[in-house]
Design a binder for these strands. Structure first.
Lengths: 210, 210
DNA sequence: ACCTGAACACCGTTCAAGT
DNA sequence: ACCTGAACACCGTTCAAGT
């Protein structure tokens, strides 16, 4: 009783299986063949659900974004600045959970329902603070860019720690470590740079308004 | 006279060939086998020059960053704000030239010579404006994050335009386009959002200093 | 030291065929 | 409609062998 004309699983099941693989074996493991195998399916059966691997990846992005709580973003009892921090922090955390999320997010335009919902919440929040709509839209883009970039920097750094040998940086003859004294001196001063930078960005918006 | 014990090409030649392929056929074409073939080499010969494909990608990042002019960043005749714009703009442009640059930059920590040099120039510039070193370092990280994120958003958008059919966003039943009125209304108001956001970030730094 | 050729264990995707 | 099996044109990487 192997084959059956009845649809045995859903698109959501496939996306879940893909995340399971991503979590346990990393991005290289989420392949069409790998996901299919983890569900007891043939690779070709996958194309009944998604027209391409990229379509699967984009569905994953949507699932990823669906877990961030937009309700908190529109809670007027909390200061807008705090709400942005919660939203941005949640997004960064989600993107950072799996090392491959960044390539997921770059697999296509962020035009899924949840991606648009997040953008909508950001614009609404900024206009609620008295920003003209045109500026609020640009502020939302800036915040998205900042969060994504921070996630990218995190991902890049982690990519180096996971492998040491054959993944090394180009050597460039390398005189001594003190060739970049300012950078060198700041490696320990990192702390929570993400929140700090976000606050500067928000300060910039406020200053503009004043 | 095919084989020869003498090294026929350099690492730089390989990186150049890889960029040539990237420009002409896109990221999927820059494979170990593809680059080797474009140089008349066997795939295995590549491992004489780079220990892995990732090492090649990281060398490409360094070459990419080497083309941005750090001298302009330390020219005290120009206002610091303008210098940041030039630096950030050049970086964004380089990252945007090839659609695959973003995955390049995420292939490992940005600890190559040119990556560190860029960071050094940023920190030096901010301290030159009277910022304490700890804050200058964090400001440099924030700027890098913002630029990288803007590049990621650009790349994501372009990834959608290149293919239309099998790369589509998940449908999600889709009632009507007016479900996200704020986002909808801002699609045309984009303009040069990059410079605007960067200016807000710099405003935030200044406000902090005041 | 530099390179080749064969091989291993994979990919995404298409197509004809089964139920 | 949903699924399988075979096939096509690829991957990154390793290994033994040649010069």
């Amino acid at each position: 009783m192997r084959p059956g004309p009845r649809r045995s699983i859903s698109q959501a099941d496939i996306v879940d299986a893909a995340f399971e693989l991503l979590e346990q074996k990393g991005m290289p493991a989420v392949s069409v063949r790998g996901v299919a195998a983890s569900l007891g399916l043939t690779p070709t059966a996958m194309y009944t659900y998604f027209p391409s691997k990229n379509a699967l990846l984009r569905a994953m992005v949507e699932q990823l974004l669906s877990t961030i709580d937009l309700a908190a973003a529109s809670d007027a009892d909390i200061a807008w600045r705090d709400r942005v921090h919660v939203l941005a922090g949640a997004l960064l955390a989600r993107l950072g959970e799996h090392s491959g999320s960044l390539v997921l997010v770059t697999s296509g335009p962020l035009d899924g329902t949840h991606a648009l919902g997040l953008n909508e919440a950001l614009i609404a929040g900024f206009t609620g603070e008295g920003m003209p709509h045109a500026e609020a839209a640009r502020a939302a883009v800036a915040v998205r860019a900042y969060v994504l970039g921070a996630a990218a920097l995190d991902a890049a750094e982690r990519a180096g720690r996971e492998t040491s040998a054959d993944n090394a940086a180009p050597e460039a003859l390398w005189s001594d470590a003190a060739a970049f004294p300012l950078t060198e001196a700041s490696t320990d001063a990192a702390g929570d740079g993400f929140a700090w930078g976000l606050d500067r960005l928000l300060d910039g918006f406020e200053r503009r308004a004043a």
